[in-house]
Amino acid sequence: MNHIMKTTGNKFKINNLQSRIISLFLYFLLIGFTLVVLYPILNVFSISLRPGDRLLSTSLKLIPDGASFHAYKVLFAQTPFLLWFWNSSLIAAAVTITGVALASTAGYAFSRFNFYGRKSAMVGLLVTQMFPPTMLLLPMYIMLLKLHLINSYLGVIVIYTSTALPFCVWQMKGYYDTIPFSLEESARIDGSTRWGAFRRIVLPLAAPALVITALFSFMTAWSEYIVAAQVLQDTSLFTLPLGLKQFEASMSTQWGLYAAGSLLVSVPAVALFLILSRWLISGLTLGSVKG
């Protein structure tokens, strides 16, 4: 008996040691990946602090000699950075709001109603995702031209929204499918209209899907370059990606400004993600039905 106790004791110790080694290894791995991800960002940060416009440097210092926030000052004071920021925000906000409004309702229709052409419309949405975006550039450009939407916010908003929508609609539909029908029926008996049941019961429960839709729409608009470059020609309408590209000239690129701008561009995206991520929770419908 004693003997057995002892061996299991040892075994336990060994297991403990093993799991420690494994977690140590995992931590090293995770730290490694983090560094891989962080290094370029730190590098960009370092460039933005460097005096002059030196892209390459032999120094490995994170804070370079003679570091200053000069580039940031110039960015705000002497370039239309804030205007571009405003343009981008406006466009991204419009795309996000339209995207969420359309995807949440269209997804609901696909999930709950049985109408003629439902299946083919779903497949149709999927098919649009199979073409590379650059291939759509020309036809889209021609359409915008005919609609007189070239060189306007609305032009890019329309294109971004329609690019983001198919994925968002599918995504919303898939999520609605997991929300039991009887919840809405119960709400309708309790006194809601169909719309009321959608707004009070289904939408709150679909929060995670709405967040994904919002983030996806936002990112589609926020970081897009190619379409914007074709559609927006007036510098005063430029979005951030277009604006940043201006710092790159054939002879002398203003690397400091470029780097500072890129870092600032990523701030809203990160912030939005952090804010919205608290709604990205699973198991919202838990406890509603027994099935």
């Binding site: 919840l183 008996i189 006194g191 209209t193 406890g287």
Partner: peptide, 20 residues
């Protein structure tokens, strides 16, 4: 007449409670 105007209440087999 839509359900909300029938002045009825229904208890579902799966309860259908509002989880949020």
């Amino acid at each position: 007449v839509p359900p909300k105007d029938r002045d009825i209440a229904m208890v579902f087999q799966n309860y259908a409670l509002y989880p949020h």
